[in-house]
Amino acid sequence: MRDFIRMVSVLFIVCGLAAASLAVVNAITKEPIAGYEKRYRDAALREVFPDADEFLNDEPDRVWEALREGQKTGHVFLTQVQGYSGPITLMFGTDSSGAITGLRILNHTETPGLGAKITTAQFRDQFKNKRSQQLILSKDDSARGQIHAITGATFSTRAVTKALRSRLESFNGEKSEGDK
């Protein structure tokens, strides 16, 4: 019985001390972590929609309304898609005519050297000024497709392209239903 009490009290004290020290660390790092996430997100918003000067969160952390001098000029979307080896989180903007203003890959676990090239400007810049019906790999549909796949990473590039197209299509669908 004495052993039992000793074990319980030692474990209790150790866990209590661990919790207390973690509480302190959490209190110290909370501000910088939240600040960094906000800065990172703001930088991404500005990058995918350079023309806008203000972003209003439309749907929490999924859709933003882009404003320029108080006027609505388009939207920014955050979406996630299954890539080759895990989810790809990406952000892109479209102006009011439906053309894409920019794309940024926020998070991915694609193969380094192959799929990871989706983060390069060379790949992402192809999407600029494209409309949803043009967002097809040129190797899948040579007549309409406007996006060139990265050699050796067709799967990753197709996933990104499809993510943009389906997000735009579902958004346009919601919009036209709302108009009725």
Binding site: L22, I28, Y36
Partner: peptide
């Protein structure tokens, strides 16, 4: 506990 301290510190100061 030490791992969590490292994790939070990295997140906060070396994002």
């Amino acid at each position: 506990t030490f791992v969590t301290i490292v994790d939070y510190t990295l997140k906060a100061y070396f994002p």
